[in-house]
């Protein structure tokens, strides 16, 4: 016989309501026909979803966000993969310090990092807005890339790399033909997690966007300051669905979050 834990059941239900409630409310209000956010809505309408496309800044910033996140991701990979490799493959003096430096963007408050970025990248070095955004997003993605790929390299048997070298492969050949194919899923997960981090980022972007160039979250923020209609709810639902799909892919690739907690 299973024991019934009523207390636990009630507590869990409350937690779920607390976590998922806002999402449900947003989803429902996005279908409301009125001009202000209202719960429960007075009827059913898809017009606010159409309005996403009507406000041309939304599709435009969506594209900007995607491009910045993808390009930044690529840059973060180019920097992060060799860093993760070196940090897990070799034991050298200053390794822990280097590790801490690479992870520091997640430890520093986003506002501080964003402001510093503004000060240096845009004000001091006069980089174009687009380039500045890209640099900022690369920096915030780097720790995730290094952390996730590092964790898949930490249980990597480097003797297979030595085997490849002993069979005549050069160092790069061995890396691309033997190491990389065996940490594929780690790299995919790193890319997806970093992508989400960058795509949803507000605190860095808010300092780095400028006239005519903005990311979707910043555009949403600006929109909410001026209008209070359900468009914002509709776009949130679209983003939730996209994020959900990505998380589903990560889940399938990595066996979910267990991958990050088991070591």
């Amino acid at each position: 016989m299973k024991e019934k834990h009523y207390g636990l059941a009630i507590f869990s239900t409350l937690v779920f309501i607390f976590l998922l409630g806002p999402l449900v409310i947003i989803s429902v209000t996005s279908f409301g026909p009125g001009t202000v956010l209202k719960f429960p809505p007075d009827g059913f309408s898809l017009k606010w979803y159409q309005n996403i496309w009507a406000v041309d800044m939304f599709p435009k910033t969506f594209v900007t966000s995607i491009i910045i996140s993808l390009l930044g991701n690529l840059l973060a990979l180019i920097l992060g993969v060799p860093a993760a490799y070196a940090l897990s493959r070799y034991h050298f003096r200053g390794r822990d310090l280097l590790n801490a430096i690479f992870l520091s963007p997640v430890l520093i408050p986003g506002i501080v990092l964003g402001f510093t970025m503004l000060k240096y990248v845009l004000v001091m070095y006069q980089l174009p807005i687009y380039a500045g955004l890209l640099v900022g997003h690369t920096v915030i993605m780097l720790p995730f890339i290094i952390r996730v790929i590092g964790s898949s390299l930490s249980n990597f048997d480097f003797s297979i790399e030595e085997a490849a070298v002993s069979l005549g492969a050069g160092r790069l050949q061995a890396f691309f033909r033997v190491v990389l194919p065996n940490i594929r899923s780690g790299i995919m997960a790193a890319v997806l997690i970093a992508f989400l981090e960058s795509f949803n980022n507000v605190d860095i972007s808010v300092f780095m966007t400028g006239p005519g160039i903005s990311t979707l979250p910043i555009q949403m923020l600006t929109y909410v300051q001026n209008y209070f209609d359900p468009t914002i709810a509709a776009i949130s639902v679209v983003l939730m669905i996209l994020t959900g799909l990505l998380m589903f892919v990560i889940e399938r690739l990595m066996g979910g979050l267990a991958y990050f907690t088991k070591r």
Partner: peptide, 19 residues
């Protein structure tokens, strides 16, 4: 360098390429 030596190495962990 190792890859220029043409020696065969058999590892304790076998070190086969899993992929």
């Amino acid at each position: 360098p190792v890859n220029k030596r043409n020696f065969g190495f058999v590892f304790q962990s076998y070190a086969l390429f899993p992929h």
